[in-house]
Design a protein around this nucleic acid. Structure first.
Length: 488
RNA sequence: GGUACCGUGGCCGAGAGGCUAGGCAAGGCUCUGCAAAAGCUUCCACAGCAGUUCGAAUCUGCUCGGUACCUCCA
């Protein structure tokens, strides 16, 4: 029934059948955030995409070790290997200790991840917690002849490396053109080649964050942290490495180079890259100033938003697009997602109350196949949702007494929705206030209204309905009595 | 400037040589005291031009438009 899982690998540019190196274990590394500011929605999309990967692999029975780092040092303001560490810069600006900055935004990031119902990774290592590993790796790369020290800074020798390995394999760029198009070094640089990047950077006097090393006081380059931490926790060769597409040409290209230069082993079997979230067709990014913070989205306080949207609405919205496509953000699209999400969840709520019949006139097995085939096709969540909406139609139809379902099929249908909607897609019920007291209270009110209706006192019954609607509670009359939903 | 990618109905988005998702919105019908919900139904789109083919949204070429990367970014 369930075909094999296939994953699109950015390096080979092919969709490949997923075969873990050491089944049933799976190692997955995803480049996490640099914690110098709040996580915006574009970041959320990436990590939500990988959350689906993590959840689905787990659902399939794999024992997944998911490592997602926190970059709390070493990330420069630009890639020129000079200038300031992002964390240090922010710390000076806000007159705080660097670790205060790190703490603040790490806490914020985790909180955001939790709100969107992303599972925490198995390991969340920090760059500052792995300085020794990064120094060791740098030493080994120097020993192997692919890096050199120059005035307290260690550079990776791209030219030498590219003679033995395809440096641009991941990005698909032409090496010669890269060499000619990279901007000028500005003269004072110590590197030999213009593509060379820093593994270790000498700290200038004004630098707040620095550590001792064989090359003097300094701090690690950005790319080395992921190489050091991924190989430490997942081995020199592991299954999945992911990140945003914008990391392909530089960060991931350099990561592969570092790993190969250090271990001479191909580090990653499947490279997964997620596409960007756009706003009016433009990439959402901090530098363009068009990024939304999650709390602005929930409260609807951003100028581009007409009103607020809940985390699960946004999650559903993201799942409606494939992770390798750009997704354009708009009020209309979000409103559509909100309605669609409600429709899905309403059907899920009907599931426990459905009555089984002697036989079925709905094809549950086909539905199950459609759902799994979609997920197995490179985590195609839009198709998965489309299939689930076929299920929604079935559920509604059965609920209306227009279709029948056997006991055995009903068990399967409930399991499918439970597994996929909650476990794999990570959607969840968002009840604003319907705890048991409210529920009891509503039951009383609806009974009052029912008796008014029985007396054909429609003025009274409609009055109750209208008043409830005004405070955000919508009453619906069904065959089995009235129900209500609370909206925001 | 170089290199990639993309252009699908009112909107968001799948698909990837013939069977033409899904959600939202809009119209009609059924149900209903009225609503709402639900069900059924209508709306048959693939930037333009040329070509390959029995057949193209899907392949090829060109044109136009857009985006990303090359510089920090998920």
């Amino acid at each position: 029934m369930k075909g094999p899982l296939k994953i699109y690998d950015t390096l080979s540019r092919e969709t490949k059948v997923f075969e873990p190196i050491h089944a049933p274990f799976v190692g997955m590394y995803v480049c996490g955030p640099t914690v110098y500011s709040n996580a915006h929605l574009g970041n959320v999309r990436t990590f939500t995409s990988f959350d689906i990967v993590f959840r689905y692999l787990t659902h399939l029975g794999y024992k997944v070790r998911y490592v997602r780092n926190i970059t709390d040092a070493g990330h420069l303001e630009n890639d020129a290997d000079e200038g300031e560490d992002k964390i240090g810069k922010k710390a000076k600006l806000e007159k705080l200790e660097p670790m205060e900055i790190v703490q603040r935004y790490t806490v914020d990031f985790r909180e955001v991840m939790r709100m969107f119902n992303n599972w925490p990774p198995s390991i969340e290592p920090t760059a500052t917690g792995h300085i020794i590993e990064q120094i060791e790796m740098t030493k080994k790369i120097i020993e192997n002849g692919y890096a050199y020290e120059s005035n307290g800074t260690v550079y990776f020798d791209v030219e030498k490396f590219s003679k033995e390995y395809p440096y641009t394999e991941l990005s698909g760029r032409n090496l010669d053109e890269l060499l000619n198009n990279t901007r000028d070094l500005g003269g004072q640089d110590d590197k030999k080649g213009r593509l060379d990047f820093a593994l270790w950077i000498k700290a200038k006097p004004e630098h707040i964050m620095h550590w001792p090393s064989p090359w003097g006081e300094g701090f690690p380059g950005w790319h080395i942290e992921c190489s050091a931490m991924s190989s430490k926790y997942l081995g020199n060769s592991f299954d999945i490495h992911g990140g945003g597409m914008d990391l392909v040409p530089t960060h991931h290209t350099n990561e592969i180079a570092q790993n190969l230069a250090c271990n001479h082993e191909v580090p990653v079997k499947y490279w997964i890259h997620t596409n960007m979230l756009t706003v009016n067709g433009q990439k959402m990014s901090k530098s363009l100033g068009n990024s939304f913070l999650p709390h602005e989205l929930f409260a609807g306080t951003h100028p581009l938003l007409e009103r607020g949207y809940s985390p699960m609405t946004v999650r559903f919205f993201m799942l409606q697009a494939h992770y390798r496509s750009t997704l354009d953000f708009s009020n209309e699209a979000l409103q559509a997602a909100e309605k669609g999400f409600q429709r899905l969840m309403n059907a899920v709520k009907l599931l426990p109350n459905l009555k089984a019949s002697a036989n079925s006139d709905v094809n549950i097995d086909e539905l199950i196949d459609n759902v799994y085939n979609a997920l197995n096709d490179d985590f195609n969540t839009p198709i998965t949702l489309a299939a689930l909406f076929d299920g929604v139609r079935m559920i509604n139809s059965i609920n209306d007494g227009k279709s029948k379902i056997s006991e055995a099929d009903l068990v399967k249908l409930r399991k499918l929705f439970n597994d996929i909607v909650f476990d794999v897609l990570g959607l969840m019920e968002e009840s604003t206030a319907d705890n048991s007291k409210v529920d009891g209270l509503m039951k009383m009110i609806l009974e009052q209204r029912a008796s008014a209706k029985a007396r054909r006192d429609f003025a009274a019954s409609d009055g109750i309905r209208d008043q409830l609607k005004e405070i955000g509670i919508e009453v619906k009359d069904g065959k089995e009595g009235s129900s209500y939903t609370i909206s925001n």
